[in-house]
Design a protein around this nucleic acid. Structure first.
Lengths: 234, 234
DNA sequence: ACCTGAACACCGTTCAAGT
DNA sequence: ACCTGAACACCGTTCAAGT
């Protein structure tokens, strides 16, 4: 077998932005949001904390880059070419599952509003929204709404995951405690919350999330239907 | 004029949970999320950092309590007795304005999912949702969706405010920079984002937020209309 | 019983000194 | 040119010592 041509001799495990981001993702997945530390990072990279600053500018830069890597991977795996409403559902669910697997992505997404991860997501959601007939001047506000909703769910999932990690309670006992607290609220002041507490126990986060996307799509459809027929560019 | 009866002699400026929360709100408003520090708090309260722990359990406890004070005030000021859809709009806008005035409330809200501030908000939103005819078994998921949306907008506003504070840029130059960055993205990969960049410059956060609430209400109306007529309990 | 504030165990970030 | 790691300027939280 012929030997491969001699390449520029890359040092094994040399420090690079990519490798830093990979290790950061490992740490975040293994230890949660609080686990990403320059000292822990340096230890795993077998270097000093200062060396990292040669490749990243900031902790928030690092967090955004790690978040972007997950978002890019996730969106790549969502199949293209579906009907617009189904495409939106698929993208939204893909993000939900990604954030479920990497809860820290939820809070990372929220810290960088106009940055690359959000841009990627906006782009993928915007194209099917156009196909649904959203008026040109309403396209910004419509994606914004959908992005805010996805972000809101993401942040809540992140908060729940962090709370679970901090208190070492599992999901069902946690939900049980919250439902119990809600059920014992003052009946006159909190009738709705009391009534809805049992539903909290039985609910399915993923299904609820999808219900919100569907509600949004219904609203978009109702809005598109009620405005003058757009002259299709064919 | 008869003197008031002698009361238990309260020391002026004595340390109390309420006073700690008030000062915490002052600090958060004046210096942003990062400005709430036990040392700064202790200084303003003319005491040591340790003394605070006699009245609060935690920093997150303090943040949630401060958030709850704002939410309670805000909801108290929203007039009651309107038509259900208008009531929802009024509550949502009240929260928007409160978070606009106190951006840290956005992130504080997100850290305490099942806690008092969220319960207050859920209760106020849930009652008009019932009046709109949302099916009993769908009430939990429907409020959840609306809460997630409001939370998502809140978190984004908080992030924007924090970014503005950190970089000392004002809103319009910030938006200008983001819009410019979006406009110079690769045309083949990011057509939607490029097209929508000008709308970013001209947009009105509050109007966009309300557009989302309206979209949600339209979706709820469409869902309620398409299901069997509920047997009204009269 | 309550306050006090030094001390502990961490952070992110910098920068002189090394190679 | 790049890494190294001690040092700086902070954190939240605790707890012996005071009153």
């Amino acid at each position: 077998m012929p030997k491969p041509p001699v390449r520029t001799p890359r040092r094994e495990n040399s420090l690079s932005r990519e490798r830093i981001i990979d290790v950061a993702i490992e740490l975040l997945d293994a230890r949660g949001e609080g686990g990403l530390t320059f000292r822990a990072l340096a230890e795993r990279l077998a270097t000093g904390p200062g060396a990292i600053y040669g490749h990243i500018t900031d902790k928030s830069d690092l967090l955004t880059a790690a978040c972007d890597a997950i978002v890019a991977r996730t969106l790549d795996q969502v199949p293209a070419g579906e009907a617009p409403a189904d495409a939106i559902r698929a993208i939204a669910l893909g993000m939900f599952d990604a954030i479920d697997a990497h809860p820290w992505v939820g809070s990372a997404l929220s810290t960088a509003p106009g940055d690359l991860p959000v841009i990627r997501l906006m782009e993928r959601l915007g194209q099917p929204l156009r196909e649904l007939g959203v008026a040109t001047q309403a396209q910004w506000s419509t994606v914004s709404v959908l992005l805010s909703y996805i972000l809101g769910v993401a942040v809540q999932n992140a908060a729940n995951a962090q709370f679970a990690r901090a208190t070492e309670t599992d999901r069902s006992t946690y939900l049980g405690a919250v439902a119990a607290a809600w059920s014992s609220l003052d009946a006159a002041a909190y009738p709705f919350t009391r009534d809805v507490a049992p539903q909290l126990l039985a609910h399915d986060d993923r299904a609820d999330f999808l219900a919100g996307v569907d509600l949004f799509l219904k609203g978009v459809a109702a809005t598109a239907a009620s405005r003058p027929v757009p002259t299709a560019s064919r």
